[in-house]
Design a protein around this nucleic acid. Structure first.
Length: 860
RNA sequence: GCGAGAGUGGCGGAAUUGGCAGACGCACUGGACUUAGGAUCCAGCCCGCCCAAGCGGUUAGGGGUUCAAGUCCCCUCUCUCGCACCA
């Protein structure tokens, strides 16, 4: 019988579906395990990255199930977002239709991969039954001041025609389409993520199951820094400029003041002065420059004197005030004290405008001369020119100066963060409506809870010019004020889709719960938190930080009982493949480059570097093709075998062949033995005393169970787990075939074959179900307990001891495992080869590393 | 520039705690079976000298600690990722 993957896979998938094999319910008597993979955006088809991500997750889910856990393994759709709307504009198809069609196709594809989801828990975030609760939470957040509206300058992508959060701007470009981000002033809704900033930061050290890398990225993103807010009084006696600094140790060296060009204070100071019009054009210029600035490597430091002065609060020295292009308006106070001697940016600025330099930190080994300095001195040193603080170390004086400022009322300790509040307003249609109403009389009023959900209307008009289609729909906009009953208008912004993905894992616990607040606390207390979350590193900041924040908000509403949503996080690597390029015709698909020549011009094809699979590089693999040719099991095992999950995976079609060959090899050896082993059962644990080859096979079987269990349990290293089973299969091929009536020997064979099948069951579920069944087992392999190993059988009776002289391998010997250490040392020195080499040498010492080696240290 | 991670055969990768470097797979070579082989099975396969046995070398490069280093420490180089005027 031949291995026919397609027929087998479809057979078992049908059975799993009919039996609802992976349906799960709360069971207080069983230990729960919540395994979650990041849900996909329904873009149309699954790609190979999904295949890898979901395969990793499925192996863990199936493994934990075999280990007796009550496993929650759900799947759903992150189904709001721009591509649906773009499709509406381009192809005149409604976003809802487009989305649901994509979902139904992708659901089929996922089922065809054999993933063990509880499909009864499937959710789509664009379903009003889902987002109505999100609208409820929004109202609660509004009532608690955690959601607020603010007129603000925002990042705006002209192509997507929408606002972007800071986190969604990458190097000055839109994270999604790569268009340059511009600035726009709009009324925007924000979530007050900064209210939880300290808890978000503190828990970074309380999540040992997260990769260090991700935690570091989040910490940097939050960007907490300790410093002082210092008041610099205006020279004309009218008010003071507040400044944030982490370097109050350099305060005595501050010789001028810098203000962000966009800061309102700039125009205030220039008002009515001769420089006013110059300042205005400078500010306009900087505002335009701002977009371009971020994309260039280094930009010229520019500034303009505002014809104003303030005073250094400690020295009383007059400091000229400049507007500058390199000062950030939204960090600290938007004003910076400039210390040109100890800050490189200030140094460059001072040189350009010929401003005074005062050294206040002196290195220990030399003296600095302001006249000859070519760059700022930014290292540690001793304070000079700093009044009563002279002679102190700069790192130690920070506290003393902070105390002094506070005692004088000239400043106070403060903490600054890089993280801003989360702007969630989007001027788009395909998103969850923000449940707010604007009333001329009452202002902003929330929709009444009983009137939720605010359902997204279907009959909207899309135009390529953008703008919100909702705002153009009077029957949606026009409403009555819930408070006074007068005429009012609805909020037409929709929520950032990251809001939906911030709590979908909660909803999976009770997807049909339709009582307020949409989450059943008792059920969530059983399932939450997610024990293992798996997804791409690209979500290290955005999605994961927002989800952590939202979890804390819901916790404080009493809706859930956990502080953090994800106990363990695995970030899998990208799927990459080599690229092929013709010097004339650009990137080529593999089939366009036969024999290394371009299919059009026959020029030699250049094999490019290995890059993340993408359509434009023509190096993608279509999962459908893969399944058609090899079946889902081969796709699954290759994804796991080619590299450990957290590393990038380099696609190799020959590697896929190899994986298919292995499955065929497994199939064939069981098929070969089938008649002989049908009526024997696996050997009882101790009873059987096999000899020679068979004894070695039994040992190998138990060692393999041990290794595979450890590789999966401790570190998710499926690649080494698979190679261990390959070794077992190789051993089986090498064993001399026992006679048909040698039931003891056949029992050992059967044990090895069954173990291989059980160990591979989470990885390649279809072929193992089939093999398990044809071997005569009644119960589905997915329901079998994970095999145990017997340490006694797994342990070797003999061991190879390496003999080294001065650390170099010189000989080997085989001894019983329980051999005495002293005897081994003596035997090593008596070894034939060793004796010859020790002839004229003095033995300095002999080291025995138990079960490993003997090292003889000699002098010639 | 700052931070993190990585660098091992022709290739993907293994070596879990400082203890035989190169498991497993791919590619390649040879053999068997065969009308045939892009099927299957068996064998070989880090590099150099050598028919061989054997000897020497080898984990980006250099130095160090140690009886012993791919693994620990220091320096240099290369690559990847993240942040990047954050005062």
């Amino acid at each position: 019988m031949k291995y026919e993957p397609i027929a087998i896979e479809e057979k078992w998938q049908k059975k799993w579906e009919q039996d609802k094999s992976f349906k799960v319910t709360k069971d207080p008597h069983k230990k729960k395990y919540y395994l979650l993979e990041m849900f996909p955006y329904p873009s149309g088809k699954i790609h190979i990255g999904h295949v890898r991500n979901y395969t990793i997750g499925d192996v863990v889910a199936r493994y934990k199930r075999m280990r007796g856990f009550n496993v929650l393994h759900p799947m759903g759709w992150d189904s709001f977002g721009m591509p649906a709307e773009n499709a509406a504009i381009e192809h005149k198809i409604h976003p809802a239709k487009w989305t649901y069609e994509n979902i139904s196709h992708m659901r089929k594809q996922l089922k065809r991969m054999g993933f063990s989801y509880d499909w009864d828990r499937e959710i789509a975030t664009c379903d009003p039954k889902y987002y109505r609760w999100e609208q409820l939470f929004f109202i609660w957040m509004y009532e608690k001041g955690l959601a607020y509206k603010k007129r603000s300058s925002v990042n705006f992508c002209t192509k997507c025609d929408t606002v972007l959060a800071n986190e969604q701007v990458e190097g000055g470009l839109c994270w999604r389409c790569g268009t340059e981000v511009t600035e726009k002033v709009l009324d925007q809704w924000f979530f007050k993520i900064t209210a939880y900033i300290n808890e978000l930061l503190e828990y970074c050290d309380k999540l040992p199951g997260w990769p260090e890398r991700v935690m570091t990225m989040q910490k940097n993103w939050i960007g907490k820094s300790y410093g002082c807010e210092v008041d610099f009084p205006m020279a004309n006696g009218k008010g003071a400029i507040k400044v944030f600094t982490t370097r109050q140790d350099t305060l005595f060296g501050a010789t001028f003041m810098l203000i962000a060009a966009e800061h309102p204070l700039v125009m205030e100071l220039a008002k009515g002065k001769p420089c006013e019009s110059n300042v205005r054009s400078f500010v306009e210029k900087v505002k335009k420059q701002d977009k371009l600035m971020r994309t260039s490597e280094y930009y010229e430091k520019e500034g303009l004197f505002l014809d104003s002065y303030c005073k250094n609060p400690l020295t009383g020295r007059e400091m000229p005030i400049y507007a500058a292009n390199f000062v950030l308006a939204d960090y600290g106070t938007g004003c910076v004290m400039a210390v040109p001697t100890h800050d490189q940016r200030d140094f460059e600025f001072a040189k350009k405008f010929n401003l005074p330099l005062i050294v206040v930190i002196s290195p220990k080994d030399r003296t600095l001369d302001p006249a000859t300095m070519t760059e700022a001195y930014v290292d540690e040193g001793i304070l000079v020119n700093s009044g009563q603080f002279d002679g102190m170390e700069n790192t130690k004086v920070l506290e003393a100066i902070a105390d002094f400022l506070e005692s004088q009322g000239k400043g106070r300790r403060t903490i600054q963060y890089r993280l801003r509040d989360w702007g969630i307003s989007r001027q788009r249609y395909w998103g969850a409506p923000i449940p707010m109403i604007n009333c001329d009389k009452c202002g902003i009023v929330p929709v009444k809870e009983e009137d939720l959900p605010v359902v997204l209307p279907e009959n909207v008009v899309f135009s390529p010019e953008g703008g919100s289609p909702l705002a153009a729909l009077p029957e949606f906009v026009n409403t009555v004020c819930p408070s006074c009953g007068g005429k009012a208008s609805r909020e037409t912004d929709t929520m950032d889709t990251f809001v939906e993905s911030s709590w979908y894992f909660d909803r999976y616990c009770c997807p049909d719960y339709d009582e307020k607040p949409g989450l059943d606390r008792r059920t969530l207390d059983y399932w939450m938190p997610v024990d293992q979350y798996i997804g791409g590193i690209e979500h290290a900041i955005l999605h994961l930080l927002y989800s952590r924040f939202y979890t804390k908000v819901l916790r404080d509403f009493g809706v859930i009982g956990v502080d953090e949503p994800f106990t363990n996080l695995l970030t899998q690597g990208m799927v990459c493949k080599e690229t092929m390029k013709c010097p004339e015709h650009g990137y080529l698909f593999p089939e366009q480059a036969t024999d290394g020549k371009c299919h059009i011009c026959r020029k030699d094809v250049i094999i490019g570097k290995t890059e993340k699979m993408s359509k434009s590089l023509k190096n993608v693999i279509d999962p459908d093709d893969l399944i058609q040719r090899y079946g889902a099991d081969t796709a699954r095992i290759f994804c796991l075998f080619a590299s450990p999950p957290e590393k990038d995976l380099e696609w190799s079609s020959q590697g896929v062949d190899g994986s298919f060959r292995f499955l065929s090899r497994l199939w064939r050896i069981i098929d070969d033995y089938l008649e002989d082993i049908k009526t024997v059962s696996a050997p009882p644990k101790e009873a059987l005393s096999a000899q020679g080859d068979l004894k070695a096979l039994r040992r190998k079987t138990h060692q393999t169970i041990r290794k595979v269990t450890m590789d999966i349990e401790d570190r998710f290293h499926f690649n080494t787990a698979i190679s261990a089973v390959m070794e077992l299969v190789n051993t089986l091929y090498a064993v001399e075939r026992p006679a048909k009536n040698d039931r003891n020997a056949l029992a050992v064979i059967r044990e090895a074959l069954e173990s291989a099948v059980l160990l591979l069951a989470p990885i390649v579920p279809h072929i193992t179900e089939e093999l398990w069944q044809i071997m005569g087992n009644q119960i589905s392999v997915a329901e079998m307990p994970w095999p145990d190993f017997d340490p006694a059988i797994a342990s070797e009776e003999e061991m190879t001891i390496v003999i080294q002289i001065n650390g170099k391998l010189r000989s080997r010997m085989t001894v019983p495992v329980d051999e005495d250490g002293e005897k081994i040392k003596a035997d090593a020195q008596a070894d034939e080869k060793i004796v010859a080499m020790l002839k004229d040498a003095t033995i300095v010492k002999v080291i025995y590393v138990p079960k490993k080696l003997v090292n003889i240290v000699i002098k010639p």
